[in-house]
């Protein structure tokens, strides 16, 4: 896996083919909860990417020290450390975003993507490829969030990145920014992804 070519392919796979939320179905909680506006979604995506990359790097670096039986608690400590760093830094420099993401910042700790990548990839691979894997997965997660929040914000609030798109006569589909809209959008997105994947397979 230290081969540059495969490292690149793990990176590229994470973004779309193995998109963590749309194919692997990991990290659904923040996906649903923080996608009511594009701004929140991007903030969440960046925070999760930072944690993914840093914890992948550190777990990969420590992989020869961390004992096999104790690996899960060790992973959790490493991940929780970076989550807390994000938490503190965000509270200090971006209080608005910090407030709207709320409980979902500390909950990155139990985001299955981060722990899953630590276990499935970083614990078995070198630092460089683990970092690339983290970046790929992080971007994949952010892309998923971005797609979902774009749909939800445009339909549910008539705006994009808080900029109103339509005139005052537009009456938004409020349900889209409420919880049912989140479940529905994700359902349709995953269906779309599986449709595209299937069509691609047929074509190849």
């Amino acid at each position: 896996m230290s081969n540059g070519n495969t490292a690149w392919s793990t990176f590229a796979d994470g973004i779309w083919k193995n998109s963590p939320t749309l194919t692997l179905l990991l990290g659904m909680c923040p996906m649903l909860a923080t996608s009511s506006s594009v701004m929140n979604a991007l903030g969440m995506g960046m925070a999760a990417t930072f944690v993914l990359v840093m914890s992948n790097i550190f777990i990969s670096a420590l992989r020869n020290i961390i004992p096999k039986q104790m690996r899960i608690p060790c992973f959790i400590v490493v991940i929780a450390t970076f989550v807390t760093i994000v938490d503190l830094v965000m509270a200090a420099y971006s209080p608005g975003l910090y407030k709207s993401l709320g409980i979902f910042i500390p909950l990155i700790v139990v985001n299955c993507i981060v722990l899953g990548r630590a276990e499935a990839f970083a614990y078995k691979n070198g630092i460089a490829s683990s970092m690339l894997d983290g970046v790929g997965m992080g971007i994949g997660f952010t892309v998923g969030l971005f797609l979902m929040s774009t749909f939800r914000e445009i339909l549910g609030n008539g705006s994009f990145l808080n900029l109103p798109l339509f005139g005052p006569s537009f009456s938004p589909v409020l349900i889209m920014i409420m919880p049912p809209g989140a479940f529905m959008t994700l359902g349709f997105l995953i269906a779309l992804k599986s449709y595209l994947d299937k069509r691609q397979k047929k074509g190849a």
């Binding site: 420590l62 020290i65 961390i66 004992p67 039986q69 104790m70 608690p73 060790c74 400590v77 490493v78």
Partner: peptide, 10 residues
């Protein structure tokens, strides 16, 4: 030894 390593990391 395992507990020791976890403690150090923590």
């Amino acid at each position: 030894k395992n507990v020791f390593i976890l403690t150090i990391i923590s």
